[in-house]
Design a protein around this nucleic acid. Structure first.
Lengths: 225, 225
DNA sequence: TAGATTGTTAATCGATTAACAATC
DNA sequence: TAGATTGTTAATCGATTAACAATC
């Protein structure tokens, strides 16, 4: 039943409760929003509200990662993003392509710590011709039809889905078709991949606000469930 | 934490474990397939394989509904569909519109017991102009653009999403826009509805094969989570 | 110091599972 | 009867939560 993450030091993320692993991307997304607002500190209560859970659960979950908070103060937003990013992404840098150049996609591409935590954003694609050619955080937006080319050229190992809900499944399908095998879904819908595709499914749960977390890193592929 | 179903006699479905409620539509879909094949009896082991769980779980889940199996034999497919359909649908008949006239949609519309269990299929819509105008189980397929008109005219209270995964979210959005407040999603993806829309969320979980089950019947609306 | 908030404990709860008696 | 399969029990497991000592 345990769902150890590839590329993460054992005895740390390898021993995270499955329910906690499921919530990490939810926290991460909340932290991205806070970072965008320039907020540098967050309490378990605030993060709980952003994630739609209670504060006790947040503290419990974060305690599995380590003692990263400060009593009487809270958690450092940037540091916490790094830690969670590190766990979600593993240690070795994995070039990221973001699908969707809307608000969320742009926020993710702008966030510096994202690259620092092992997710350098090297490409962005979008379906809207109006945004193709624009730059976000120094990266030119390409059309989604060019995804296979973009992925190959930039060596993207991870795809982040930052589309509206209705487009998320197609984004995933396109990423899979382009050979991407690690997908973080930040759209508010749970997506699926064909069985036998070799994606590792870490997370079966969902939330109204978010998510779905599929992970497969350079390793053996196993299916949960 | 309990998720009592509106329109279902208390002390029965009202006391079903949440994890069981989540799996009922999964079993239901498996039973639809069996019924299509003309299979009349199914063992917990067979149903478990169709649903992607283990046999003990199937027996445990079904035991919450009542003692509907026969030792040494198995479960009657049609009868089990009726029981599960009754629990999912409540007691009063709720006219159904099916979105998606593909294999699954047609199978659902054909299944007689569906109407018998309180879900008379009164309308079918599809996005493909090629199938519009055709009949399935005596019901004419309309174009999905006419959904609001169809829903109003036929008094549909329940929408069943039987589209490919990529189209499921839009189907849900259209159903919600058309005023449908009970949605059974049979597409292999979990869909979401805007917060505050008044849909009652019964199920947060998903599976690779299936689904998501949102329910709201003529009652107060509550949000889980 | 006083106030705030974390990190951890321990109790509780719900879900899963194997095993097997019941029984067709 | 013999074989098959259910329905239920009981043990186990993981997740949740409140509470509070630790500590900034």
């Amino acid at each position: 039943m345990a769902a150890p993450l590839d590329g993460v030091p054992d005895g740390e993320a390898g021993s995270l409760p499955e329910a906690t692993v499921v919530r990490l991307p939810v926290y991460f997304r909340g932290l991205v929003e806070l970072a965008e607002d320039g907020t540098t500190t967050v309490s378990s209560q605030q993060l709980a509200e952003l994630a739609g859970v209670n504060a006790a659960k947040v503290r419990k979950d974060l305690s599995y990662l380590g003692s990263y908070g400060t009593r009487g103060v809270g958690y450092d937003v940037g540091f916490l993003m790094q830690q969670i990013g590190r766990i979600l992404g593993g240690n070795e840098p994995a070039p990221v392509v973001i699908v969707g150049a809307g608000n969320l996609g742009k926020a993710l591409s702008r966030y510096d710590g994202f690259g620092a935590s092992g997710f350098p954003v090297v490409a962005i694609v979008d379906a809207d011709p109006a945004v193709v050619g624009r730059k976000s955080a120094g990266v030119v937006v390409h059309h989604v039809d060019e995804l296979p080319k973009v992925v190959k050229k930039a060596g993207c190992l991870v795809g982040i889905v930052a589309t509206p809900a209705a487009a998320a499944q197609e984004a995933v399908d396109r990423l899979v078709a382009a050979g991407v095998r690690s997908i973080l879904n930040f759209a508010p819908v749970v997506v699926t991949v064909p069985e036998g595709i070799g994606l590792r499914k870490v997370d079966l749960a969902t939330e109204l606000h978010i998510l779905g977390y599929y992970e497969h890193r350079r390793g053996a592929s196993r299916a949960t469930g």
